[in-house]
Design a binder for these strands. Sequence first.
DNA 1: AACATGACGGACA
DNA 2: GTGTCCGCCATGT
Length: 103
Amino acid sequence: MKNNNFFERVYAVVRKIPEGYVMSYGQVALILDMPRAAREVGWALSRVEDRDMVPWWRVVNNKGRVSIKGQYSAEEQRQLLLQEGIKVSKDFTFEIEKYRFNP
DNA sequence: AACATGACGGACA
DNA sequence: GTGTCCGCCATGT
């Protein structure tokens, strides 16, 4: 299956995350049969063009923390998660095990 | 081809 | 819980 880009596969998985839940980059990578490619998932999400088509904000690191670098985007993600009922602290951390989506 | 980068994860102190 | 290190792997230069 090499027709689809790595991006497309990542987006396909991310789009399945229901509102109010999150997945770690590692989880997404695992579903793509690339258990060690978590970093690439983050890389792919950072290049999402249709930001309204892919719920990129529902993907966080495995520690339960918003790991976007840019302060602006990080705060944006925090707000989006808050809107879905996920209580993200001001330091961008939250109880991931309480919201983790397990397919 | 080689080297650097990155929205990471896991192991360890 | 926090910080540092090292391993992964697609891309970009």
